[in-house]
Design a protein around this nucleic acid. Structure first.
Length: 558
RNA sequence: AGGGCUGUGGCCAAGUGGUAAGGCAUCUGGUUUUGAUCCAGUGUACCGUAGGUUCGAAUCCUGCCAGCCCUGCCA
């Protein structure tokens, strides 16, 4: 498991939530802060959740407060244990520690029930027997007020009995619900007597069959926050209207109608170019087998990105780089990629891998065992030490690194009658090449300059190009999975049929060779295949498979 | 259309009345046995728009425009 994130003195970018917290602390509204990350266990976490995790846990760390992990499990029909386990794993992997044990909204079911009774006693809630369709009709529309339910004026005593009967299983699913009595003419649709409890004869992963009525999000979430002493309840923009209901519930409950009760603040959710973030769509990709699963390296899920080779540090850095605001935005992939590269560049040992191999024969090299060369693990960090690589008569280089005739004078690779430096080894010169019937190069014949290991030619001639290689007899064959964006358009979520806009080349499988030192490479650990990109060994495949996390930056055009 | 929000350079994003931070991307040089990294430099930003208040406005007021969210017994 990854290292835990510790509080530090690094200054974080400011945002409106930090400004609010600073004010609340300065005004002594709160002595310290408590936040929470409240996922519903109905799917895997994605990078948008990572943004929220970094915000909530990061705030707690910086202000020496607390952050709870709470499963918002009020809808047993959609939730299960596999998801709660994956969520715990992902949050921990990101490097965060929740306060105490994970919490569950379902821990508070008894309390929710008691608070519902309090509202009933105050004449602020009633059992309604309108069916779903009738309820919708009574609700009115965006421009027209709704009308009161005929059950709205039932006496508290009668409602109490009815609600107790609901809990006891005396009503069928859909037969009735408990509703708040607020205002059927409110401009906030969520205030038109919202449902507080519904009947569901559903087995719950935490409470088993104890309950057949389950609270709605708007009723459970604010109370859960209040019970846990959450000071700043952070959620996304689509809950802005719901804040009125959040406040209404807490203001009408004696235990919570206090100045230091929780308050909800909303920030914009993450939208990333060329991918989708909605759980519904991610479910669909998995269910329709358009990807391998939730942890497919092309998925924007935390587990997928982990498998792809993203590091917790890079994900956290990304969250910090994009910041927190209330603007509906579409974040470019460039920011994500820059964050991974910056981390991996420092952390990843260098190695060489030939992804699309073509054979090279060094004709003037003695036909003997290959020689050993000590190559640095990292050109800017000697402390990382050295590794053994090999050079001999037969090598592999990448097909893209050779052309019979250089296409232009910017071509810095191998061409007939031209010289190029083999990374960490000698300068070679291409003499001729064999081709198969289709015209594909099969073997390139070269000579090498034995006086150029670790130094430039004595005669002063300049050889600018550098290409990578692997010695053939020591090479270990490996599979490379080259990933590209999952969709062909920047905003697939907006497409009529997002599956029609999937990128058919989002995964390209190649078979090539790596240095022998990588034969037993650990899983999920980053390596830089020089001139190619950052890769890590796949955490599921039995054989030697490397996933490309991200390519190196390429700054030459034309 | 009733309501809730948001509009600052290509993309994120500071700024909250005193005359536009930063990051990513871009481009240009330099170093380099990764066309990587690193270093230095690089942007006329009509601050959505039209008015108004003010000595002075991205910041205050008004109108307009654009985008997002809200009529689940989902969260």
């Amino acid at each position: 498991m990854s290292d835990k994130v510790k509080a530090d003195s690094v200054e974080r970018p400011v945002n409106f939530i930090r400004n609010i917290i600073n004010d609340d602390l300065a005004n002594h509204k709160h002595q310290s802060i408590t936040t929470r990350f409240p996922p519903e266990p109905n799917g895997y976490l994605h990078i948008g959740h990572a943004k929220s995790i970094c915000l909530n846990f990061g705030l707690a760390l910086d202000y020496q407060g607390k952050c709870n992990l709470r499963f918002d499990d009020t809808n047993p029909a959609k939730e299960n244990l596999e998801y709660v386990e994956s969520i715990k794993r992902d949050v921990a992997w990101l490097g965060f520690e929740w306060e105490g044990e994970p919490r569950y909204s379902s821990n508070y079911f008894d309390q929710f029930y008691a608070y519902a009774v309090e509202l009933i006693n105050k004449g602020l809630a009633y059992v309604c027997f309108l069916n779903a369709e009738e309820t919708r009709e009574y609700r009115g529309s965006l421009t027209e007020p709704g009308k009161d339910s005929p059950y709205r004026d039932t006496s508290p005593a009668e409602n109490l009995a009815l609600f107790e009967k609901m809990r006891a299983g005396g009503f069928k699913e859909g037969e009735c619900v408990l509703r708040a009595k607020i205002d059927m003419a409110s401009s906030f649709m969520c205030m038109r007597d919202p449902t507080l409890y519904r009947v569901r004869f559903e087995h719950h992963h935490q409470t088993g069959d104890k309950w057949c009525i389950y609270p709605m999000y708007d009723f459970a979430h604010c109370i859960s926050d209040a019970i846990e002493g959450i000071t700043h309840s952070l959620c996304t923009l689509e809950f802005q209207d719901n804040r009125r209901l959040y406040d209404w519930v807490l203001d009408n409950l004696d235990d919570f109608n206090k100045p230091d009760r929780p308050h909800q603040y909303e920030f914009s959710r993450l939208n990333l170019e060329y991918t989708v973030m909605s759980k519904r769509k991610l479910h669909q990709l998995v269910d329709d087998k358009l990807v391998e699963g939730w942890d497919d390296p092309r998925m924007p899920t935390i587990s997928g990105m982990r498998r792809r080779g993203y590091t917790p540090a890079a994900m956290r850095d990304f969250a910090e780089r994009i910041g927190i605001s209330k603007v509906d935005s579409m974040t470019g992939m460039n920011i994500l990629e820059a964050a991974v590269r910056d981390d991996l560049n420092v952390v990843a040992p260098r190695t060489m891998g030939v992804i699309d191999p073509v054979r090279v024969i060094i004709e003037n090299y003695a036909d003997s065992a290959p020689e050993t060369i000590q190559a640095p693990m990292h050109p800017q960090n000697e402390a990382m030490g050295k590794r053994e690589i090999f050079f001999g008569r037969e090598l592999y280089i990448d097909r893209a690194d050779f052309a019979e005739v250089a296409p232009d004078n910017k071509f810095q690779r191998l061409a007939l009658d031209k010289e190029v430096r083999l990374r960490n080894a000698y300068i070679i010169k291409a003499l001729r090449a064999d081709k198969d019937a289709d015209g594909n190069i099969t073997t390139i014949y070269c000579t090498y300059d034995p006086e150029t290991l670790g130094k430039n030619p004595a005669d002063g001639r300049k050889v600018k190009g550098v290409i990578h290689f692997v010695e053939a007899t020591k090479a270990v064959s490996a599979e490379f999975r080259i990933y590209d964006r999952l969709f062909t358009v920047p905003n697939p979520g907006k497409a009529d049929d997002f599956e029609s806009v999937l990128n058919p080349d989002s995964l390209v499988v190649k078979h090539g060779f790596v240095e022998p030192g990588l034969a037993d490479a650990p899983v999920e650990v980053a390596y830089q295949f020089e001139r190619e990109g950052y890769f890590c060994r796949d955490n599921k495949a039995d054989s030697l498979v490397f996933n490309r996390t991200v390519a190196l930056r390429e700054t030459w055009n034309s």
